[in-house]
Computed example of a mutant assay.
Amino acid sequence: MDLFGGSSFIALQRGLEGAQVRQKTITQNIANVDTPNYKAKQINFKHTLDEALKDSNFRANRTNEKHVEFSSTLSTPSVQVNRSSVYNHNGNNVDIDVEMAELAKNQIYYNALIDRINGRFNSLQTVIKGGN
């Protein structure tokens, strides 16, 4: 029996890894807010989740043949550089307000994943203790 290799644990793990990559990208943008000609980077976060679902063989539970199956569109995570705009007078296009909002959003997402993982471990702990 594989307690930690199930599809939900793998999806949660990959979600955390994706949040980490996004955090790094956002903090690089914030650190370079005053760097001349620096161009802001963004990560397409949906790609990270799609990759996690692909690797974990995540499937819907169909109880009726009329139920529609779902699947994720598979692609690899990508960091994109926005070269089309200039926000500051020095050629830099980092908007600190946008970056701080994205940082907060990513932190909320990360905390939600951690809460879900903690719930899974608490359930296992309850089973191990015999329901007490």
Score class of each variant (00 low, 15 high):
residue 1 M to E: 10
residue 3 L to N: 12
residue 4 F to D: 01
residue 7 S to W: 07
residue 7 S to P: 11
residue 8 S to E: 10
residue 12 L to H: 09
residue 13 Q to F: 10
residue 14 R to T: 10
residue 15 G to H: 04
residue 19 A to I: 04
residue 20 Q to M: 10
residue 21 V to A: 13
residue 27 T to P: 01
residue 28 Q to R: 14
residue 29 N to L: 06
residue 30 I to W: 03
residue 31 A to C: 02
residue 31 A to I: 03
residue 31 A to P: 03
residue 32 N to K: 03
residue 32 N to Y: 05
residue 32 N to P: 01
residue 33 V to L: 05
residue 33 V to Y: 05
residue 34 D to W: 00
residue 34 D to M: 06
residue 36 P to R: 10
residue 36 P to N: 07
residue 36 P to S: 05
residue 38 Y to G: 06
residue 40 A to P: 00
residue 41 K to I: 06
residue 43 I to N: 04
residue 43 I to L: 15
residue 45 F to L: 11
residue 46 K to G: 11
residue 47 H to Y: 12
residue 48 T to K: 04
residue 49 L to G: 02
residue 49 L to P: 00
residue 51 E to Y: 09
residue 51 E to V: 07
residue 53 L to A: 06
residue 54 K to D: 13
residue 58 F to P: 05
residue 59 R to M: 10
residue 62 R to D: 05
residue 62 R to I: 15
residue 63 T to C: 01
residue 64 N to Y: 07
residue 64 N to A: 14
residue 67 H to K: 07
residue 70 F to P: 00
residue 72 S to V: 12
residue 73 T to N: 11
residue 74 L to C: 05
residue 77 P to N: 06
residue 77 P to M: 01
residue 78 S to K: 14
residue 79 V to W: 08
residue 79 V to I: 15
residue 80 Q to F: 11
residue 82 N to F: 10
residue 82 N to M: 08
residue 83 R to M: 09
residue 83 R to T: 13
residue 84 S to D: 14
residue 85 S to Y: 03
residue 86 V to S: 13
residue 86 V to I: 15
residue 87 Y to F: 15
residue 87 Y to S: 04
residue 88 N to I: 03
residue 90 N to Y: 05
residue 91 G to R: 05
residue 94 V to A: 01
residue 95 D to F: 00
residue 96 I to P: 00
residue 96 I to D: 04
residue 96 I to M: 13
residue 97 D to N: 14
residue 98 V to R: 14
residue 99 E to G: 00
residue 100 M to I: 14
residue 100 M to V: 13
residue 100 M to W: 06
residue 103 L to P: 03
residue 103 L to Y: 13
residue 103 L to I: 00
residue 105 K to F: 05
residue 105 K to V: 05
residue 106 N to C: 00
residue 107 Q to A: 15
residue 109 Y to A: 10
residue 109 Y to V: 07
residue 113 L to Q: 02
residue 114 I to C: 08
residue 114 I to W: 02
residue 115 D to V: 05
residue 116 R to F: 11
residue 122 N to F: 05
residue 123 S to H: 06
residue 128 I to F: 10
residue 128 I to G: 02
residue 128 I to Y: 10
residue 128 I to K: 08
residue 130 G to N: 07
residue 130 G to H: 08
residue 130 G to E: 05
residue 131 G to R: 09
residue 132 N to T: 14
